[in-house]
Write a protein that binds this DNA or RNA. Structure first.
Length: 475
RNA sequence: GGCCCCAUCGACUAGCGGUUAGGUCACCGCCCUUUCAAGGCGGCGGCAGGGGUUCGAAUCCCCUUGGGGUCACCA
């Protein structure tokens, strides 16, 4: 059975890169009737963020990539949090120690830093650990360890030869073992490094396909060596391109908004975000750009992932979100998505029917749910802001607006069939262009010059409010 | 800098030896129009460069250039 996983580190906000990786891993697993696991890699206590794990897990539920096994869901491979699996890694490290594939190293962090600095000054091409303890007497090492001396356990990487990583997308990638160094497997605090923990867990959890970001490619030979040291079978390696900032560097929160929570707060729809991520380095075989995760599962092909690093383009994300708002979601669904935003903004509405009318009228005019809140204030409050340009327009209308108000007051109803001929007739009678009448009226009624069509506006606002607002504006 | 990966319009991509190099976003113009959008139509714009291979290269190979990643007791 196909088993995939993502292994996020709980160090901060749920990252779009995590969502991106989750998407490919999820889709590939589902396509093959396999399972998708989420494992929390919290082995770095210095970067640990206590709310991060919960938020990452919630983020996955929000975008609809629900894992088959996870810390909250549990599963046959529990626990799914690495800090709760420490003894497992320690046992495995010991095993490697016994077989001679690893060794204890007693360098202090200061010594390592000094050695690195020295190597840098000497202009050495070769970087990495100097292997000071690689051939240290075994008995001596054990004695010092038994005495409680702090130390790490490192993998004994072959000094010669090549290690080939067979990447699904790239084919064989060769690394000279001489270029590798003896990476730390178990830190002095007893926690494993990513290298040990990830490979042990992937093996124990039956992960068959490691689909992860390209930044891992250069440490894969090390993983291959580690797996061989244990005598296990390698998974299929598939390194996907990194999402990029507009300047092409690796997507980072310094240069871009990388927080899924932030996009959610702005009113980006989960299905739009997922759809957009699905177009990053991948495309539907038929070229369609709007598709669901289900569509993706049906047509996905890991081998069709392209290797150029895609720039995460907010403009296109927003366009796609707008596409979902105006064409994909049903009106009812859209209204439901909008409700939490309205509540947060303190917007009241008399009825569901009213809300639906407003949303329908506004639909083509906002691309995020947050934008709706900004652009539709005047449908929900009487203290809506009045823009400067609107004020000017209002002045232009002052000569005829009182008369127009009387005309509107005399109408039997505010249906478009009634208001349209009335307003157009009014303009004509005054020898004015329709716009010359509509714009000042629009300004008076909404404080804005950018609104839905006048006749929809009049109908939705209703006679009472229209007359009231007009009176107030002319006041 | 060493090592590794990558390279089609500004951005996302289709292309997998023979295409007028297609689509989407953005941008520009026109249409629609009471404003702003949306929508429709049209336009601008690309195979990084140089060598090969081949009857024929965006497609295959090499070099150069460019971009990215990685070189932690972080993941």
């Amino acid at each position: 059975m196909v088993v995939t996983r993502i292994a996020p580190s709980p160090t901060g906000d749920p990252h779009v890169g995590t969502a991106y990786q989750a998407l490919f891993n999820y889709v590939f697993a589902k396509q093959n009737g396999g399972k998708f696991i989420v494992r929390i890699e919290d082995t770095d206590r210095t970067r640990y963020n206590p709310t991060s794990e919960r938020r990452i897990l919630e983020m996955l539920e929000w975008i609809g990539l629900s894992p088959d096994e996870s810390p909250v869901k549990g599963g046959p491979n529990a626990p799914y949090v690495q800090s709760q699996r420490l003894s497992i890694y320690q046992e495995h490290a010991l095993r490697l120690l016994e077989s001679g594939a690893a060794y204890r190293a007693f360098d202090t962090p200061e010594e390592l830093a000094a050695a690195r600095e020295e190597a840098r000054k000497a202009g050495l091409q070769q970087q990495g650990y100097n292997r000071r303890y690689r051939d240290y007497p075994r008995e001596e090492a054990e004695r010092r360890a038994a005495a409680g001396e702090p130390h790490v356990i490192r993998l004994k990487v072959p000094l010669e030869g090549k290690t080939v990583v067979h990447d699904l997308l790239r084919g064989p990638v060769e690394f000279d073992n001489a270029q590798l160094d003896d990476k730390v497997l178990l830190k002095a605090d007893g926690y494993p490094t990513y290298h040990l923990a990830a490979m042990v867990d992937d093996h124990l959890m039956g992960v068959t396909h490691v689909i992860r970001a390209e930044e891992w490619l250069t440490s894969t030979p090390f993983h291959v060596l580690l797996i061989r040291a244990f005598g296990w079978e390698e998974p299929v390696w598939c390194h996907t391109p990194l999402l990029r900032n507009p300047d092409k560097s690796k997507l980072s929160k310094r240069k871009m908004d990388t927080s899924v929570d932030s996009y959610r707060a702005q009113g980006i729809l989960p299905e739009a975000l997922l759809n957009y991520l699905g177009t990053m380095a991948w495309s539907m075989p038929d070229g369609r750009e709007i598709f669901t995760v289900a569509d993706m599962i049906e047509h996905f092909d890991l081998r069709r992932i392209s290797l150029g690093g895609p720039v995460f383009d907010l403009a296109k994300l927003k366009w796609m979100n707008g596409k979902y708002i105006r064409e994909v979601l049903s009106l009812g669904e859209l209204v439901a998505r909008l409700e939490p935003f309205l509540e947060a903004a303190g917007y009241a509405h008399p009825s569901r029917a009213y809300l639906e009318q407003v949303v329908e009228a506004m639909r083509a005019r906002f691309e995020t749910l947050g934008e709706f809140v900004e652009k539709a204030v005047y449908f929900f409050r009487e203290d809506y802001p009045v823009q400067e340009k609107a004020k000017a327009k209002l002045e232009e209308g002052r000569p005829f607006l009182p008369e127009l108000r009387d005309l509107l007051a005399s109408l039997p109803d505010f249906l478009p069939e009634t208001t349209e001929p009335a307003l157009k007739g009014f303009a004509e009678a005054k020898g004015l262009k329709a716009a010359a009448v509509m714009q000042p009226l629009r300004a008076a009624l909404t404080g804005s010059l950018e609104t839905p069509g006048m006749f929809d506006l009049l109908m939705i606002l209703g006679k009472d409010r229209v007359l009231e607002r007009l009176g107030k504006a002319l006041g």
